[in-house]
Amino acid sequence: MRRPLALVYRGPAAKPVECSEAAAELLSSSPRRFDVCYVGPKERLEISPRTLASATLYIQPGGGGLKRGYRAMKSYKKVIREFVGDGGRYVGFCLGGYLAGASPGFALLPGDTDQYISTCGATVRSTDETVVEVLWRGRARYLYFQDGAMFLLRPDARGVDVLARYRSGEIAALAAPFGAGRVAVAGPHPEATSDWFEDAGLHVPGGSGFDLGHDLIEAVMA
Rank of each mutant, 00 (worst) to 15 (best):
M73P: 13
S75G: 15
Y76E: 14
R81Q: 15
R81T: 13
R81A: 14
G87W: 07
G87L: 05
G88H: 03
R89D: 11
R89Q: 13
V91M: 08
V91K: 05
G92L: 09
F93D: 03
C94M: 04
G96E: 03
G96Y: 02
Y98Q: 02
L99K: 12
L99S: 06
L99D: 01
S103W: 02
S103D: 13
P104D: 09
P104E: 10
G105D: 01
A107T: 12
G111I: 05
Q115F: 11
Q115P: 00
Q115I: 13
Y116A: 03
Y116C: 05
I117G: 00
S118E: 15
C120Q: 13
A122K: 00
T123H: 05
V124L: 00
V124Y: 00
R125F: 03
S126Q: 06
T127I: 07
T127W: 03
T127E: 11
D128L: 06
D128V: 04
D128P: 00
T130S: 13
V131E: 00
V131F: 05
V131M: 06
E133M: 02
V134M: 08
L135Q: 09
L135V: 04
G138D: 00
G138A: 01
G138L: 07
R139G: 02
Y142E: 07
L143D: 07
F145P: 00
Q146M: 11
Q146L: 02
D147H: 13
G148M: 02
G148D: 01
A149S: 12
A149P: 00
L152A: 12
L152I: 15
L153F: 04
R154A: 15
R154T: 14
R154K: 11
D156M: 08
D156I: 07
D156Q: 14
A157S: 13
D161K: 12
D161F: 11
A164G: 07
A164N: 09
A164K: 05
R165C: 11
R165N: 14
R165A: 10
Y166K: 01
Y166A: 09
Y166D: 02
Y166S: 08
R167V: 15
A172H: 06
L174V: 13
L174K: 12
A175G: 15
A175T: 06
A175L: 07
A176E: 07
F178A: 14
F178R: 13
G179F: 06
A180K: 15
A180C: 11
A180W: 02
G181W: 08
G181I: 05
R182D: 02
V183R: 10
V183W: 01
V185N: 03
G187I: 09
P190D: 06
E191C: 09
A192T: 06
A192G: 12
A192S: 12
S194T: 06
